[in-house]
Amino acid sequence: MSNQNQLITYAVVALVIGATVGYLAAGPITYNKQIQDLQNQLAAGGEAKLRGSLSIAGSTTILPIAQECANLFMEQHLMVDISVAGGGSGAGVKSAGSGEVDIGEASRNIKASELLSYPDLVAFSVAKDSVAVVINSDNPLAGDLDLTFEQVSEIFSGEITNWSELGGPDHEIEVYTREEGSGTRAVFVDYAMGGKELAANAGVKPSNGEMRAAVASNQYGIAYVSFGYIDDTVSAASINGVEAVVENVNNGQYPITRILWMFTKGMPDELEAAFIEYVQGPEGQAVVEDLGYISIY
């Protein structure tokens, strides 16, 4: 009996080990296939000049741009690994300034206090963007919500607390805000809040993605996000009668506009410079426009 048990045990263990080894072997084969192809290409003509790893962190507004550009850049430069993290603009400035990462990102301008702490930051503009107020697409007001900055500040400071005050259903307005380090928050407060404090009971979401996810899953939620995060799961409000679309930012009618930055500590080294140039170049700017942001040109 115990012999049979042992046999079964061994069979199971062998199966598990076999499957694991199989996976570990199969993974790289599939995963590396495209890399293999490119390596062959390179062996035929080009040379792998750039090598090394690059870490990028900061604004979650820029995160999609950086991630997409990094993937494209890594396909062209096989010996380069680029890690892209969020964290918010404050984290971008801090981690680039302290040398934790190679490139930081911010969706607002550097603050004076930050320049004092990290005097050797060098900034590069990579895109333009704006900030939109968004609500759930199942909200009865979705599609025709039109707010003035006055109203926006009253909603986000907790003076207007019910949707009925805006002509909507009789339900509490559930306000979400970004954390204090956020560039999107800084820009939003600058333009729209008119010196008022954000409501104390606003729920803090530490990224644009979480703002969008919160509103997309809460019928009575309201939040503000980067233009790059507007899609059909949420509905953007018009400001002063102007629809929140890229064209209206370009022609100067939509009242909020900002520049998105990347930073290096001191002058960028070869790899950092190559990546930033890539983002600023035609391929990077195509990604920028494709993702719903505005090209710097």
Binding site: S53, S55, A57, Q67, A70, N71, M74, D81, S83, V84
Partner: peptide, 18 residues
């Protein structure tokens, strides 16, 4: 360790790791 979204397997001990 890293952002979590890394699109590459770490090559060195100093690589960021998802």
């Amino acid at each position: 360790a890293g952002s979590g979204l890394e699109a590459f397997v770490p090559r060195t001990l100093k690589s960021p790791t998802g």
